[in-house]
Design a protein around this nucleic acid. Structure first.
Lengths: 119, 119
DNA sequence: CAGAATCCGCAGAGATACTG
DNA sequence: CAGTATCTCTGCGGATTCTG
């Protein structure tokens, strides 16, 4: 088995992380996956602490990466709707497994932290 | 089905992301998982672009979270070894599924980006 | 060798205000 | 309503230096 000189690049997980697990992307994808198609304002209400600027940035990134689809209606008032794409939905099992790991993993992490913090 | 007021907190994936997918954590875990127990300098060599300060920070975080174990030998010269814990190793299937998703997902993302960038 | 300490730059987040 | 336009500010991360 040959040693790769740079696991940072060889690590097959790293590129996915940049796409799927950057700031705010998982809560956005989760909201769209759970509650279906949402308007911009609805997403703002679902994610109370995000600012419109950042929400726009993340939605654009997700749209560019093909995980989210945007449909814009130039009515008055304007209407923009966001929904998850098949590619985005294909992350579902992954998120499910992540949630499953969290069930037992997070408590263990919490215990490890308390043990560590009390020297 | 009741609507949670804050998917950012309700999203069961979010807390895991902070622990597992913060900067440099996946390449480090990957390296320890692939190549087994490593000394500090060996990790530095495996991750050529990381600085010792950041490597130390991330290793401390991973140790505190119980994903990595550190054994220190106060010899001369000193020797510190890092290995993945059972908890850290329990992320293996997750990483495998992530890598599997990458096989088909990354090319699709790439196509989506090119389509988006050419308007 | 394995780090700690310090200084520094800057990308990205947040707050606020404005527009088609 | 669905964003943009500025501004500010924090925290990550890099570079450098020092030590047991």
């Amino acid at each position: 088995m040959e040693r790769s000189p740079n696991p940072e690049l060889a690590c097959p997980v790293a590129p996915v992380v940049d796409i799927v697990f950057s700031r705010w992307t998982t809560p956005i994808l989760w909201a769209l996956h759970e509650y279906g198609r949402q308007r911009f304002g609805e997403l703002e209400r679902l994610l109370p602490t995000i600012t419109p600027k950042v929400l726009t940035q993340r939605l654009r990134q997700l749209e560019r990466d093909g995980l989210v689809a945007r449909t814009y209606h130039a009515e008055m008032p304007p209407r923009a709707e966001y929904e998850i794409t098949p590619l985005g939905a294909s992350l579902g099992p992954l998120f499910a497994q992540l949630a499953t790991w969290a069930d037992t993993g997070l408590p263990e992490v919490e215990r490890a932290r308390q043990a560590y913090d009390s020297h």
